[in-house]
């Protein structure tokens, strides 16, 4: 079964740049994009807009922005960690923020990793590439339930 990446990102520029970087890195896995926190939660649990989706297969990794419309990144992280179905899904916080406070809150809420988006595109692309490589190719995902 193919491993999917979930990108939670409201900024279309960042979305496109991220997707481009993944493509360039030859990570051809399907990427599910959620444009706000609610959509991300709906997808993961098969509710709302994604009602009907059986929440049996989970993404190999969730790339989560912190500043999101509706539910913000930390709320989404709380939801993911509170539900037994999604508790083990790896979550990487990918954000512009370099605030210590944001980093601390992310780790306290159960983030597996915290990555700052650099302004320099080369550095940004490098970071995304490395993330994709690590979580899709190197990391072993937790066993799927159901």
């Amino acid at each position: 079964m193919e491993k999917t990446i979930m990108l939670v990102e409201d900024n279309p520029n960042d979305e496109e740049l991220t997707l481009r970087a993944l493509r360039k890195a030859n990570i051809a896995n399907s990427v599910i994009v959620a444009r706000d926190g609610q959509e991300a939660v709906d997808f993961l649990f098969g509710t709302g807009k994604h009602a009907g989706r059986e929440p049996t297969t989970m993404p190999a990794v969730v790339l989560l922005d912190l500043k999101l419309p509706k539910l913000d990144g930390i709320d989404v992280l709380h939801r993911i960690r509170a539900d037994p179905r999604t508790r083990l899904v790896p979550v990487v916080v990918l954000t512009s923020s370099s605030e210590d406070e944001d980093m601390l809150r992310s780790y306290q809420s159960g983030a597996n990793s915290y990555v700052r988006k650099p302004i320099d595109f080369s550095a940004f692309a490098g970071a995304v590439t490395q993330l994709g490589m690590y979580w899709i190719l190197i990391n072993q995902s937790p066993p799927s339930r159901g």
Binding site: N13, D14, L17, R20, S96, S97, K117, I119
Partner: peptide
């Protein structure tokens, strides 16, 4: 304000830089 600067001011810069590079 700092938080907004941290987030919102960087994103367009990243886009300018990113698409320039693209």
């Amino acid at each position: 304000f700092s938080y907004s600067v941290s987030h919102d001011l960087r994103a367009p810069l990243r886009a300018i830089d990113g698409f320039g590079q693209a």
